[in-house]
Design a protein around this nucleic acid. Sequence first.
DNA 1: CCAGTACTTAGGTTG
DNA 2: TAAGTACTGG
Length: 761
Amino acid sequence: MSYLDELNESQRVAVEHIFGPIMVIAGAGSGKTRVLTYRIAYMMEQGIDPFNILALTFTNKAAKEMTERIGHIVGPAEAKNISMGTFHSVFSKILRFNAERIGFPNNFTIYDTQDSKSLIKDIIKELNLDDKTYKPSMVFGRISAAKNNLISPEAYLANSEIQLEDKQARRPELGRIFQTYANRCLKAGAMDFDDLLYFTNVLLRDFPDVLHYYQQKFQYILVDEYQDTNYAQYLIVKKLAAAYQNICVVGDDAQSIYSFRGANIENILNFRKDYPDFALYKLEQNYRSTKNIVEAANSIIKKNKDQIFKTVWTDNNEGSKIKVQRSLTDNEEGRTIAQAIFERKTAEGARYQDFAILYRTNKQSRAFEEALRKLNMPYKIYGGLSFYQRKEIKDLLAYFRLSANPNDEEALKRVINYPKRGIGKTTIENIIIAANRYGTSMWEVIKDFQRYPADVGSAARSKIYEFVTMIDSFGAELEKTDAFTLAERIAKSSGIIRELLAEKDKGPEEVERFQNIEELLAGIQEFVRGAEPDAPRTLADFMMDVALLTDADQDKPEDRNHISLMTIHSSKGLEYPHIYIVGLEENLFPSQMALNSRSELEEERRLFYVALTRGMRSCMLSYATSRFTWGQAIMSEPSRFIDEIDPQYLQFEAVSRTNNSRSLMGSGGFERGFSGGLNKPLGTPPQLRSLKEVNKSQTPAQGDNTPGLMVGHNILHDRFGKGKVLKLEGQGPDKKATIFFPQHGSKTVLLRFANIQIIED
DNA sequence: CCAGTACTTAGGTTG
DNA sequence: TAAGTACTGG
């Protein structure tokens, strides 16, 4: 067993201790992943069936890498049989097997945050609540927190403490929104991210046979990043492990940075209570970073009160000191860092992938992006708006979702009138009203207006009928056709491709949109092609976990030669030879919102600790003295975290490198400020405004502007040019025509307004 | 019904 | 600044 020789003493003990509860407290860079992979490989060599192993990781990427590494030791075929993945992905699979038990279809949709917020927004409107007191993101946050603590809507409403709290905060209707939201998700056959945990717990709580089945299946459980699990995750793991108690949790309290989504450091303490005879191992030797970095990080984390005592140390070289870099503006910071990377790369012959720029908030990426592009250095931004969040992708996915689960309300609302097919806002609102009245989904209503009468005109009904027929026809193909063929067909016959093609010559963004659709289709093709002979590879299969994918997951090894830009949160678990922690300013890092309490500030400090410990050989800290926020330059002070590092590990570089002729004038930021002032539109003078209002009185023709217009006529429109009349409908002032314009596609216009001439040809 | 424009307002991190 | 909504003219 050669790999055991690659472990130090404490690592080896943790690997070989495979029965009973154990906790591994693993300092940053101490070989935690190595312990986990070797432990699983070791278990399998001891004869444990991979089917009986459950390994929960924090990201899909970590799961994938670990599966690969275990595969190298025990063989890929065997490694594949381990249940390894994020909580969300493993639980979503369990839920799909058992969905009908809890009243969901097994092809339930997973709502992403966007979907959830959009639904909440609609509900707030429907309940006639003020959307200023009930801001969708705040409401969503409350609901999410409730679910992470396994509080049902009913329990929420019944809990007098919560109710009092909401009343005092002047949002007494939160419980009702929560209840409505849960109801609508159920009707839509949809779960949000939190539901994946919440309902897994319900399933295991209410169905002893299911619990028993999974307890028998998962006789050996490993949990990575245990410090970032929330109450729901804690309880589920506890239930699953109850029968055999072969549970190994690995974590580092110093790297707990997800309390905002319910992560609870108490779980570490609870572990001691739940398994009093547990074994505790500490991994304290850091193999990743220089002495300077390790010591600097230690000197920071020492300032926190809440922590489990441990001493992280390293045998590595001392390394260079941590440079502190000041810039005048955020844009100059971008140039300075890009320049610094360029110089180091040249001096050391380093590769691009050796560098990472880490920031607190996604929006900071811009300055670096621009600077790197100017210097022609390849970079990749992780996080932010992911591929699957882009509008055009979500639109197409909405069609896929509808095909698999037509009750999916968010998908339906998204595409029932996209591309435009003349189903307007009022129509959609009335469908929702009807659906609510009959306690059913929007789809059921539009499928059968006889059964569920709705206030929808006959013109709209016929268009809806066409839409329903189309979705039905897609649905009928789901099981018969492979994912790629069907996806392509949907893209075409939904009109999305036509829509994007028509806009393609508008500009580079439109071209990119079209390419994104092509990329998605190519991805589906690969999904089908990469399938094992008898594995199901339908579009529904593809859709199963699309909602759970992130950008980092589709990172291909071949194109890794770039500088990485990401938030510190998403850098967790990664390492880079050279890192640049930027935007170290008060109110940005630590975030202004974290200044209210000690515990929040300590979490920011842990975040800084995580950032520092990503670095292997060098680390630079950077801040700017002024920064653009919402179009205004705001002065900023260096972060307290810089002062908190023992100065013996720091080297201050007071003068900015790019402080050359160009920036004397006041670099980027100020330039922007100036031109902003100069180009600022003068604003509409009051006189003009009132003139416009006068004009209003002499507005449009009461009736039809183009009498005698018939279907089939060729016409000339003042904006869209030549076209052919396809359809006429409505009477008097509401009379409208659907006209096909070769250059613009088909449009519906009100004849009262449209400037149309009939032409002969 | 559609498209262009004026106005408002964002608090941050992620599966 | 940038995105999202409300308004308005055709």
